[in-house]
């Protein structure tokens, strides 16, 4: 009961509140930003950095894929050469058996 009362008081604490007053220079600052075109520059810098990160991610993904495929190819080659050597040895052994 006491808890419910406390929660109600908290939830109703915004009743009768006033709007926050901005600083008197806020409007002038915004106008100055529009006039100087700073905003567009800030925006483009942000877009550029996003693009840069996207490109970096893309390039690293390509590099990773290449490395993975290289490792895989080498592994397959090694496996194949091992198998060829083994079969050659087997053939050689068999062949020698025939001569004897």
């Amino acid at each position: 009961m006491k808890q419910e009362k406390w929660i109600d008081e908290i939830l109703e604490s915004t009743k009768g509140m006033h709007k926050a007053e901005p600083s008197p220079f806020l409007f002038e600052q915004a106008i100055a930003k529009v006039r100087s075109g700073n905003f567009k520059k800030e925006h483009s810098v942000h877009e550029n950095s996003t693009l840069r990160w996207f490109l970096a991610g893309f390039v690293s993904l390509i590099i990773m894929c290449n490395v993975l495929s290289l490792v895989k190819t080498n592994f397959v080659k090694e496996k194949n050469s091992d198998e060829k050597t083994a079969s050659a040895e087997k053939y050689f052994n068999n062949a020698t058996t025939y001569t004897y």
Partner: peptide, 12 residues
Amino acid sequence: HPGILLEKKENA
């Protein structure tokens, strides 16, 4: 919040 009544500040 600057617009909150003083007695309700803690609750807000």
